[in-house]
Amino acid sequence: MDIASLADAVQRGERRAVARAITLVESTRPEHRAQATALLETLARTGREAIRIGLSGTPGVGKSTFIESFGLMLVEQGLRVAVLAVDPSSKRTGGSILGDKTRMEQLSRSPNAFIRPSPSQSHLGGVARRTREGVALCEAAGYDVVLIETVGVGQSETVVAELSDIFLLLLAPAGGDELQGVKRGIMEAADIILVNKADGALKPAAMRTCADYAGALRLLRRRPQDPEGFPKAMTVSALDVSGLDVAWSEICKLVEWRRAQGHWQTRRAEQARHWFQEEVRQTLLARLDSPQARAVMQTLSGQVADGQITASRAAEDLFARIWPEMQPTNPPESLDAATDTP
């Protein structure tokens, strides 16, 4: 593959080239990983930045409908919009439906929009392992806004906050009360809470839910990256396309304030460090997928199952056999030795 030609096509904003580039970075083949690294290093010099918006919510809350209506509104304003949707993978077959393009039929036909569904595979936290690289490719292609739709797994889905500038949490009417709102996890990561489906017979319930969560947000400790009034709760209707312009106005207000106060670049630097550490962890796990490591793991797994050895001791033995050079030169004294009296 000609990496230079692919990089040029991505920088020109060719959607087919962006799709090919994302396929390349998602590949696990060693030769593709080397090419993907070269491509990302080439495109990193473009210096282009987009507003990265992470979006999460429980299944059925209307994330895809919201993204289509929101994306069409941004496109009408002259912005280029990329959507990276993460689809859950089956634990039985490993497959994914990847049907977000079908759900976002109108947005997918717009020449200024790009939609890419990706399988989550075994990665936890609602995003795929290479979602961050996909965001970087969309930025290099000149997209103004990158929307990252997560799987939708619940209160622990906070990984998307580590690759987005603004984190939106979509909720359904009658989805909780103030006690639900103060639960830690995803609520603490949200910048704006949007109560969707605020239309028709559900509108009164949506208004009550919004009021409950607005009250709950006031009980949370204020974060240094938030101006007065944030995080906040709002009502929207993706079906009636109401409240979306107000939500975009609040997003722009928050982006401008964070840029002016220096939180924007600080946060992106912290995210870069986080993903470096995550890449190290994933690389170490990949190193365990070798014939030698699998043989040792199989032996130790049998010993753990039989109760001959604890899981923690088995893990230590595994690394001692595979990577002896990584063992500490001066191991700490055992607990028994530390508690013995002379």
Rank of each mutant, 00 (worst) to 15 (best):
I3A: 04
A4S: 10
Q11S: 13
G13S: 13
R15H: 15
R16P: 01
A17I: 10
A19H: 04
L24G: 01
V25C: 02
E26K: 11
R33M: 07
A34W: 05
A34H: 13
L40H: 13
E49N: 13
A50P: 11
R52Q: 13
G54T: 05
L55K: 01
S69Q: 14
F70T: 02
L72Q: 07
L74T: 03
G78N: 08
V81G: 14
V83T: 06
L84K: 13
L84N: 15
V86L: 03
S89D: 03
S90I: 02
T93W: 00
I97W: 07
K101D: 01
L107V: 09
A113F: 08
P117H: 06
Q121T: 11
H123V: 11
G125E: 02
V127K: 05
A128R: 12
A136Y: 14
D144T: 03
D144C: 09
I148H: 01
T150S: 13
V153S: 09
V160C: 05
E162W: 14
D165V: 05
L168F: 00
A172D: 04
E178P: 01
V182L: 00
K183D: 12
K183T: 07
D191Y: 00
N196P: 11
A198I: 04
G200D: 14
L202I: 08
K203H: 11
A205G: 10
L220H: 13
R221T: 10
R223K: 10
P227E: 03
E228F: 06
E228T: 10
E228M: 08
G229V: 11
F230N: 04
P231Y: 11
P231F: 07
K232M: 12
A233D: 12
T235K: 01
V236H: 03
S242I: 03
L244A: 02
L244F: 09
D245F: 06
R258Q: 01
R259F: 06
R259M: 10
A260M: 00
R267Q: 14
A269R: 12
A272L: 06
V280R: 06
T283P: 04
A286W: 04
S290Q: 04
A295W: 03
V296W: 05
Q298R: 12
L300P: 05
S301T: 14
G302H: 14
V304H: 05
D306N: 10
T310A: 15
A311R: 11
D317M: 15
D317N: 14
E325T: 04
E325W: 15
M326D: 10
E333P: 05
L335V: 08
D336T: 07
T339W: 11
T341H: 08
P342K: 02
